[in-house]
């Protein structure tokens, strides 16, 4: 494993598989236990540095670190020196002085974790940067797919929605490709980046044509405000063409699953009855997030300094 986890490309197939296997072992080791805590990272310090509000991701990382007995410092940009104009570099030097062994960073600017990695000695884990990547989300998604379908190799995955602005999509395309899955991106052309043709994924504008041929549908959050910038004409038209409703769910193969990284816009990209159906993995994804992040922290921090 590399020292940092900044993007899906930091993981080759062996590393990615090791993370998933480790998460599975951790899950198994903790299954049915009353005290879900391991002493593994006792004495290590994990800093959650969140420049963007994301309670669910922060809590997931916090729980992961605490279950491994690490000391956790939550450093929220809101209301701290950060919001008073302290630069990322100054914050990095502060964290360095605190002796952070790992910095979990969420930032609205693409590449901020890469910058941070130049300035701290500890491991940097990207918990979502701008419209770039969110690698632990991709790991937990891959873990969830493997758990449900028993494999990743050859699994057909449709990623549907605002690919252009989605760090989840970028990380998933990269990681799922690394792990041997076949990815199809489905979106209106306005919500696909120029240059998407260079990605290891198929591209389709037609959700109905893709759905019967996939094992996994991953719905991305679409912000209704995008229509103000003319990415699509209206929320209603978007949802009619690219939303996953009960009718569309009906054309999926029998054992296909429906995923969503959350938070969902029910009625926009996903209908309530789909989100709450047996195909939906949305709740598992949350649980799997903790074990996957435990595996990442263990593998990055447990090891000898390379």
């Amino acid at each position: 494993m590399k020292r940092h986890l900044l993007e899906a490309a930091d993981l080759d197939r062996a590393d990615a598989t090791l993370v998933l296997d480790t998460a599975a072992q951790i899950d198994q080791a903790l299954a049915g236990r009353e005290v879900k805590k391991l002493p593994t990272l006792r004495g290590r310090t994990v800093v959650n540095l969140f420049y963007e509000d994301s309670t669910r991701t922060r809590i997931s990382f916090e729980l992961a670190a605490k279950r491994l007995s690490a000391d956790v410092i939550n450093f929220s940009a809101k209301g701290s020196s950060v919001s008073k104009g302290e630069s990322l570099k100054d914050t990095a030097l502060t964290l360095e002085a605190m002796g952070a062994d790992a910095v979990v960073v969420r930032h609205s600017s693409s590449g901020a974790p890469h910058r941070l990695a130049n300035w701290v000695r500890g491991s940097v884990v990207n918990a979502g940067d701008g419209t770039h990547e969110h690698p632990t989300q991709a790991l937990l998604d891959a873990y969830t797919i493997r758990q449900r379908l028993g494999r990743l190799e050859g699994v057909r995955v449709a990623i549907v929605g605002d690919v252009l602005h989605s760090r989840v999509a970028r990380s998933n395309v990269g990681l799922l490709h690394t792990l041997g899955a076949d990815v199809t991106l489905v979106a209106p052309p306005t919500l696909l980046p120029v240059g998407v043709g260079s990605w290891p994924a198929e591209v389709s504008y037609d959700l109905d044509a893709v759905l019967p041929k996939v094992d996994v549908v991953m719905m991305l959050r679409v912000q209704a405000e995008r229509m103000n910038a003319s990415f699509f004409p209206s929320a209603r038209e978007y949802s009619r063409r690219y939303g996953l409703d009960a009718r569309r769910m009906g054309v999926l193969p029998d054992d296909a699953i429906v995923m969503h990284p959350g938070p969902m816009n029910r009625g926009m990209e996903i209908a309530a009855e789909v989100a709450d159906s047996a195909r939906s993995t949305i709740v598992e994804q949350v649980a799997n997030g903790v074990s996957t992040r435990m595996a990442v922290l263990y593998l990055l921090l447990g090891g000898a300094p390379a």
Partner: peptide, 9 residues
């Protein structure tokens, strides 16, 4: 672990 590195579980 700090001395010996991680290994597959």
């Amino acid at each position: 672990l700090r001395l010996r590195g991680v290994r597959a579980l």
